Computed example of a mutant assay.
Amino acid sequence: MWALGAWVLLGAVCAGSAQLQFNAIKSVEKTICNKTVILPCIVTNLAQKGIRAMFVKWKLEKNEFFSFDGSTEETHRNKNFSSAVLESVQNLSLGSASLSISKTQAVPGNYSCEVTESNREGETVIELIYRVEPWFPQVESIFIILFLVCAILFYWIQLGVTVSKGTTFQENIGLILAGIIISVVAVVGFILLVLDGFEPKNQAGLGLIVLPAVILVPLQYFLLKIVFKNNLLLFEILVVVLESLGYLIAVIGFALCITACPPKNGAVVIAGLAIMALMAVVGLIYMIALGSCKKDQPPKKAVEEPLNDAKGVMLE
């Protein structure tokens, strides 16, 4: 009886030794920033550790799409997975049968890796999950949108103050049309930016937010010029210069972010737009405070005429 038990135990041990074992990796994630996806497949108990004794097969939902024959070192792949390659053929003898696939061809689903070493074989299953997320972190997107909205909003308030102080019909039409254009373009940019993904539409969204913002710089100059009757002082010129600097910083940030995923210089874009919004606030306060003072001052001629009349009476 004991002999039968020993034989069963020995058979179980031998059967176990014929089964290849893998690192337990249940799933991997694909994000918008991945250029390639690595599907891990690591064998932990190879015996011969030679490529020629190995055969690797990958399947998606039980449909084979890739195989590698170590004895001939030949690779076969499905045309829908033309980018699929072993991550490292040299490391195959060490147990690494991981597969690299381009982001566009790596379809979410359950992938199975089958590895054979002579008369031993094994299989592991890895789920590929696509994690949907926006290009910019949510906080950065909020600040980018917020500061440009503030800059545009304060422009409209400045325009209202300017109109109240008296402007020509042509000036009103031009300033209103410019405000409408920058507002509409900005809204389109906001929508494209916050869409999930890192695609040309997202890059175009950031471009529509940053690049047309240059319109706000000459508009700030014209509003100040109208309010102060073409007599711009050093402070008014400084406001326009600083707003131009803010725009330049935003454009530099845009150039640094446009091809990066995740964007590492979103703070530069935010800083530039923040300076533009701040200068719009300063311009508005200055326009209300000092613009009203200038309006209340009586014209120079109106003061001189009574004085001249008084002098004439005294001479008589």
Rank of each mutant, 00 (worst) to 15 (best):
E199G: 06
E199F: 07
P200T: 01
P200G: 03
K201Y: 14
N202E: 08
Q203M: 12
A204M: 13
A204N: 04
L206R: 01
G207L: 01
G207K: 00
G207C: 03
L208W: 02
L208M: 13
L208N: 03
V210G: 00
L211H: 05
P212G: 08
V214I: 15
I215R: 05
L216E: 01
L216M: 13
L219K: 00
Q220E: 14
Q220Y: 09
Q220W: 06
Q220T: 11
Y221L: 15
F222A: 08
F222V: 14
L223E: 05
L224P: 00
L224F: 05
K225Y: 07
K225I: 05
I226N: 09
V227I: 14
V227A: 06
F228G: 08
F228R: 10
N230F: 06
N231P: 02
N231S: 09
N231G: 00
L232G: 01
L232M: 11
L233I: 09
L233A: 11
L233N: 11
L234Y: 08
L234A: 10
F235V: 12
F235P: 04
E236D: 10
E236L: 07
I237V: 11
I237W: 10
L238E: 10
V240P: 00
V240D: 00
V240W: 00
V240I: 12
E243C: 06
E243R: 10
E243W: 02
S244G: 15
S244F: 11
L245P: 05
L245Q: 06
L245G: 14
G246Y: 07
G246W: 09
Y247G: 06
L248D: 04
L248A: 15
L248M: 15
L248P: 05
V251Q: 03
V251R: 07
V251I: 15
I252S: 13
I252N: 03
G253L: 02
G253R: 02
F254W: 15
